[in-house]
Every structure is written in structure tokens, then in C-alpha cells.
Design a protein around this nucleic acid. Structure first.
Length: 734
DNA sequence: AGCACGCCGACT
DNA sequence: GTCGGCGTGCTC
């Protein structure tokens, strides 16, 4: 009897054993349909075995092999296994969350590849065929024998039942999906590389056949993308596939278009969570077959099954969105490095402000730093950064006289300005001046933010809305204080909506456009705004960090930064790193073409080292200081961290669950520091009270050893129905 | 996570 | 008399 160990989508740290009909030819990586309790589930075979510890009366027979997808490779399974161990999550959960949801269903996926090719078995079958009257199947095989591959649509013209016949041939293993495109590829290489780009590219291409991690360090406009493109060209030329990870869904269409233009005719696949279920499954399968040569996607794409992966690029590698914040809390950037290492291929981590972890790895010689020190376009110098001392400035609506004057100049010159304020809505809180009531969210430990809707209505007519930015709770803004009845409710602080009003009143003639996730939510709105900006129909842009990322505005010559100081005061030790990256990125929007950019940062702390580094465009100085501080404080990257979090209906219950968990912690943990349970900084979210225990160790190995014992025990812990726990390795949220 | 089994309150 | 409340236990 053959036993298969199957990964199922249950949060249990074990696999499930099933018996198989030996004639089914089940392989590791295959999708299978199995009975599970009272229902049927799709699982993935992780391993085959002769025997099992499970009593034989409990072993049930699998119901079927799902042959619409090829088995996942050993390499892929090994990556999932690594992810499971490193992030302390059940293998079944890892595999099932990496799989496109459509493939978790048993109904076969319609085979609709771009083209078909004969397999060796198909050739044999054709040679052995003797029937006098050729069947449709045989006609199809004949047709395929004359070309390396034939497009699906052409084969469909050979008979009304061609689709079914092709499916049958595919099921019999006589044909395989293929690409009709030539195996050679074209690369449009019209720009000459700078000396720095050339040497970076040389370093990468010199190790196309072995593992190396490169940090491609260069400011906005220094030509990182061009280096990626050339490296991908070499990868494709070697007959391999390239995987490109980007932080946000918004960036994928833009980048896919750019890649498509540079690699005409090369099949490029896009993977992100907004795709239709079938499309995502299709891309997954085409990536696996090798039909797609380039895969572009968000963090989930790190699990794309690529048979001939030859290069991984992680763009904006410092971006926090590479870390999954629920379920399997993996870092796609870190998994990309691990995957490259196991495949013995290069990985390129690109950023103007590398994550401190990445920078430390480069300093330690584990990664190789490749610098692109200058902007490539002639005359496009780095913007001039000036700190505007708000202790000395006259301000109106939060805009200093200095900044107002600079905006006025841009309007007069028909250039564009961008005012960066990383806070959506009208005001961060509504408060009662009489009794001290504030607009708190009932479900979260946070204020409800004042919004106005609809955004374009005249001020008198629009009605206020209170919205929680954490859980989405919405309520109409009260007209008088819910606590004391006072009618003078005051919106405190400033968000982008309020700034929009202020700018419009300061510059009545200016055409103002606010861009944040509220104004870009509707489909196509971003494209329309983009067109207006490009046409010069906008004078002043107001935006959150959504504007800071990867967009090039040729007419933009001024960036004003408002209210950055808040992040300077944050308790989170990563806040300065994030602030620096954000400011550097938004500053990079200024003056990309032949116009020199200017950046004005309004601050009450112009002497702060972070701002001083920003003025000098000195990431390395900033990073060196941060690294020193982190090392002295014993924070990452000098230490490895994990947290066990608990969520419950009351803070007491959450803390009690953690104390219970601590009882199960291994007693002997010399190199590991275990902290007391404390509420999280956002202590209540969507009605869940949250607390955590921090685990730290200077040794990654010691931390992992400790966690694997501890977490295994936690699965046996008795947990109340209205409480839950999870573990987060390398957490970003405290 | 589901889902079934199982033992106690207000209702057609 | 029973429909259903969610505690507890199991899933190869």
C-alpha cells in the first residue's frame, strides 16, 4: 500500500496520511482530493511513504488525483518547508496559502494554454498509429508533429470537437501546453548604460550561474530599472525565467507595460491578489510550464512555481509591504533571498534606502553593494533639500510663508508642486472644547478621523463623516457633543482634505488635485488623474505616500513636506528608518527632467540628525548611525526577534492567554530573552484586545531552536473560544 | 478552521 | 414536548 503525506488547509502542525491506488502514479507535489472528516478537501502531496504511525483503521483512501496541474517541484516544496519552519507555521497552511485559491477546488481548470506541443509519448503514439481513417485526435497529433508548438486557436479550427480532443490528449500525456513564441527573445536596448550601471550589470551577470545577493543602491532616477532589464535580458538569453517582486499592486500594470515594451513578444505574467481567480490560476500554471518567461508580482509571487528560475529582482526591497501581516507572516524579500540561495541564482535587492537589515548584510559582506550614485539623465541633478524652521516661520493653515512663496513661484512658472502630508481625511480627531470628549473608535484604540463626503461638494453643504482608519467603522459626524451637548465641536489637526481647502484658499487661482487612497479608490480614477497631471492641468498636488511611490512627474519641481515631525517622536525603533525612506522617496519626485527640483521640509527640529542626513542625501551616514543605535540597544539587525500575540475580548484575557503560553516556554533558554506580556501599541483592533510577548536573541539559531519547541507546545494549549494566538517571526508591528 | 456531537433554556 | 445555544473534541 502506498501512503501519501498530504498538506491540508487546517491550522494544525501536521500532515495527514492517506492510502492511494498504486496505479495512480501519485508524485510529491501533486494535488489530490481526499476525504477529511465529513467533507472533501484538496491537498498537496508532500511525500510518499511505505508506512505510517497512524493506526491503519484511521487511514482513509484518497478520492482522486487532480491532474489539471503538474506536480509542484521539489524546489517549491522545499521553499514551503523552509517557510513553515522559519515562520513557525504548519506546512499545510503555508502550502495552501501559497496556492491560488482556484486550485484549492477540485473542479478541473479549463486548459486554455496559448499553444500545444507534442510530448515524447505523443510522438510514439503517432508513430504507432495505424488506423486507416484518421481520428480527430490523430489529426491533431499530426499537426503538432510539424512544428515545435502550434497555437491553440489554430488547432481549434481542425474540428468542432477539437477542444475536447485536446483536453483528452493532454490528459493522456500525449501533448503538453507550450508557447508558440520563438525560444529566442527580443530586447529593446536603446539607452546606453552609465559607467555605474555597466559595472553593476557586469557584477550581476558574472554570477548568473551561482547564488549571490546584490543590493542595487541608487536614488530615484539613477536607473535601477534599466539594470534590472538588462540582467533579465541575460537571464532570458540563458533560457531561464525571471521573477520580479514589487511592493504594491498599483505598480504592477505600469511596470508590466514597461517590461512589455522592452521585451516585445516575450510572455510576461502578472501575479497579485486583485486578479480574477481563473486568471491567477492560469498565470500560475503558465509560470510552472515555463511558457511565461517573466513573472511580475507582489509579495505572493515569491511562491510562483517557476521551473527554470534564473534571476529574482526585489524592487524597493525596504518596503514594509513585503511582509505579510496576517496568516503566514512571511517576508517575501527574505524568502526571495532564500529561494535564490537554494537555486544557486542571483537575487537583486533594489532601493534608494535599503532596509537596515539589508544594509547590515551588505556591510557584513553577505550581500554585495552595487551603487548607482547619480541620476542618469543629463542635467537631472539631485533636488536641493531645505529645512524650514517652523519655530521661526509665519504659517497659515500649516503652510509656512517660505513654502507658500515657493508654491506661488511654481504656479507663476507653470510648474507643479507636491505637498506631502501622510494623513488622510480632514482632521485626525473631532473634539469637544467644553467637556473634553474626543471621537474615539468603539472597536479600536484609535481616534475616528473626520472626513467630508462627498469630497467635491461646497463646504457648507457637505456633511461630516467619522471613520476609523484601522477597522473601517463609519458614523456621521455628530453636530453637537454626544457627551455634553455642546455645539462647538472642533476638528483637531490636519489631513489632506483640510490641506486641500487651505491651499485652495491661499491660491484661489490654482488647480489643486488631492491624491490619496480616498480619491484613487474608484477604478480608472488614477489614470484620469495621471492624464490631468501630465497635461499640465494641475498646479498643486496634495498627497499621501501613495504619491511617493514610483511615479514620475516631469513638470514637478517642488515638494513640500508637512508634519513629518510626528514620526520623529514615535516610540517604534523603526520609525526613523521608515521616515527617512519616505522622505527620500517623496523628495525623489522633484525635478526629474531638465528642471532642478527643490524640497522644503517643514520642521520644528531642523537640527535632528535625520533631517541633516536628508539635506546631504546621505543615506549611508544615516544608516550607519541607526545601525549603531540599534546595536547598542540590542535591536534588529543586531538581534533576532519574534512575538507571540494574543487576541481576546478583554485585555485581561489576552494577557492571561500569554501567561499560560509562557508556562509552556522551554525553561532553558540561555541565549534567549523572553519579555513580559504587554498590550500592543494599538491595543484594541476591531474589537479584539491585543497583547504580545517579545522574544529576542542575538543568535538567530538560538531563537529558532527555542521557538520550534515552544510553538509546538502552544498548539496543545487549551484556548477559550473567544481568544486566539499566533506567532510572528521578524515582526514589524509592536 | 470547520463541523459534529452533546447536554440545558424558551417556544411553534 | 423540541429547536437551538455554543462548549468540546476530532480531523489521516
Amino acid at each position: 500500500m502506498t501512503i501519501a503525506r498530504v498538506a491540508l488547509d487546517v491550522p494544525l502542525p501536521r500532515l495527514f496520511d492517506y492510502s492511494f491506488d498504486p496505479t495512480w502514479n501519485v508524485e510529491p507535489g501533486a494535488r489530490v482530493l481526499v476525504p477529511f472528516g465529513p467533507r472533501r478537501r484538496v491537498g498537496v502531496v508532500v511525500a510518499l511513504a511505505r508506512e505510517t504511525d497512524i493506526p491503519s483503521d484511521k487511514i482513509r483512501a484518497a478520492l482522486g488525483l487532480l491532474a489539471d496541474t503538474a506536480p509542484l517541484s521539489r524546489e517549491w516544496l522545499a521553499l514551503a518547508e523552509f517557510c513553515s519552519q522559519y515562520y513557525q507555521r504548519p506546512l499545510g497552511e503555508v502550502i495552501q496559502s501559497a496556492l491560488p485559491p482556484r486550485l484549492k477546488r477540485a473542479e478541473p481548470l479549463r486548459a486554455a494554454p496559448s499553444a500545444w506541443t507534442l510530448t515524447a509519448a505523443g510522438r510514439d503514439a503517432l508513430a504507432a498509429a495505424t488506423a486507416a481513417r484518421p481520428s480527430l485526435k490523430r489529426t491533431l497529433l499530426w499537426h503538432l508533429a510539424y512544428a515545435d508548438a502550434c497555437p491553440h486557436e489554430i488547432l481549434m479550427t481542425l474540428g468542432t470537437r477539437a477542444a475536447a480532443a485536446l483536453r483528452a490528449l493532454h490528459g493522456e500525456g500525449l501533448i503538453a501546453s507550450a508557447t508558440a513564441l520563438p525560444t529566442t527573445h527580443r530586447f529593446v536596448d536603446e539607452r546606453t548604460l552609465s559607467a555605474a550601471q555597466t559595472s553593476a550589470l557586469a557584477a550581476i551577470t558574472a554570477s548568473l550561474d551561482r547564488f549571490a545577493a546584490f543590493v542595487l543602491f541608487g536614488v530615484t532616477g539613477s536607473g535601477k530599472t534599466e539594470v534590472y532589464l538588462h540582467a533579465i535580458d541575460r537571464t532570458l538569453a540563458a533560457g531561464k525565467q525571471a521573477l520580479v517582486l514589487v511592493p504594491e499592486i498599483n505598480l504592477t500594470p505600469q511596470l508590466a507595460a514597461e517590461f512589455g515594451a522592452r521585451f516585445p513578444g516575450v510572455p510576461i505574467g502578472v501575479l497579485h491578489s486583485n486578479l480574477a481567480a481563473n486568471e491567477r490560476a492560469r498565470t500560475w500554471i503558465d509560470a510552472q510550464s515555463g511558457n511565461l518567461r517573466i513573472i511580475l508580482g507582489t509579495r505572493m509571487a515569491v511562491f510562483a512555481p517557476l521551473a527554470r528560475l534564473g534571476l529574482i529582482v526585489v524592487d524597493e526591497e525596504h518596503d514594509a509591504s513585503f511582509k505579510q501581516q496576517d496568516g503566514v507572516r512571511y517576508s517575501a524579500r527574505d524568502l526571495a533571498v532564500v529561494r535564490a540561495q537554494r537555486l544557486a541564482i542571483p537575487v537583486v535587492l533594489g532601493s534608494a534606502t535599503p532596509a537596515l537589515e539589508t544594509y547590515a548584510n551588505a556591510q557584513a559582506g553577505r550581500y554585495r553593494l552595487l551603487s548607482l550614485p547619480e541620476r542618469v539623465r543629463a542635467g537631472a541633478a539631485l533636488p536641493r533639500v531645505e529645512l524650514v524652521d517652523m519655530r521661526k516661520e509665519i504659517e497659515m493653515h500649516g503652510i509656512s510663508a517660505r513654502l507658500a512663496e515657493a508654491v506661488r513661484e511654481r504656479i507663476a512658472r507653470q510648474e507643479q508642486s507636491l505637498l506631502f502630508l501622510n494623513r488622510r481625511g480632514y482632521a485626525p480627531v473631532l473634539a469637544c472644547g467644553a467637556c473634553g470628549w474626543v471621537s474615539d473608535c468603539s472597536r479600536c484604540a484609535a481616534h475616528l478621523v473626520v472626513h467630508y463626503a462627498p469630497a467635491r461638494a461646497p463646504r457648507g453643504a457637505r456633511h461630516g463623516l467619522l471613520r476609523c482608519h484601522h477597522c473601517g467603522l463609519e458614523a456621521p459626524a455628530p453636530r453637537h457633543c454626544p457627551s455634553c451637548g455642546n455645539v462647538d465641536l472642533v476638528p483637531f489637526g490636519r489631513g489632506t482634505q483640510r490641506l486641500e481647502d487651505a491651499v485652495q484658499s491661499l491660491f484661489p487661482e490654482a488647480r489643486v488635485l488631492r491624491i490619496d487612497s480616498d480619491t484613487t479608490r474608484a477604478r480608472g480614477s488614477w489614470d484620469r488623474m495621471r492624464a490631468d497631471i501630465d497635461a499640465g492641468a494641475v498646479d498643486v498636488l496634495i498627497g499621501t505616500q501613495i504619491l511617493a511611490k514610483g511615479h514620475d512627474f516631469p513638470r514637478l519641481t517642488l515638494v513640500g513636506v508637512l508634519n513629518a515631525d510626528a514620526a520623529l517622536m514615535a516610540a517604534d525603533y523603526r520609525a526613523p528608518e521608515r521616515l527617512f525612506a519616505q522622505l527620500q522617496q517623496v523628495a525623489g519626485r522633484a525635478g526629474r527632467a531638465d528642471l532642478r527640483g527643490e524640497v522644503l521640509v517643514q520642521t520644528r527640529y531642523p537640527e535632528a540628525a535625520l533631517y541633516q542626513s536628508l539635506v546631504r542625501h546621505d543615506y549611508e551616514g544615516f544608516a550607519a548611525r541607526q545601525l549603531q543605535e540599534r546595536t547598542e540597544a540590542g535591536f534588529p539587525p543586531a538581534a533576532a526577534e519574534a512575538v507571540v500575540r494574543a487576541e481576546a475580548r478583554t485585555p485581561q484575557a489576552a494577557l492571561a492567554l500569554l501567561r499560560q503560553a509562557l508556562q509552556l516556554a522551554p525553561a532553558d533558554h540561555a541565549e534567549v530573552t523572553l519579555f513580559d506580556p504587554v498590550p500592543m501599541s494599538l491595543s484594541r483592533l476591531s474589537g479584539w484586545e491585543r497583547a504580545h510577548v517579545l522574544v529576542q536573541s542575538p543568535s538567530r539559531r538560538a531563537l529558532q531552536a527555542f521557538l520550534s519547541v515552544w510553538i509546538a507546545r502552544l498548539y496543545d494549549m487549551r484556548v477559550a473560544a473567544d481568544a486566539r494566538w499566533h506567532v510572528d517571526v521578524d515582526p514589524l508591528e509592536f
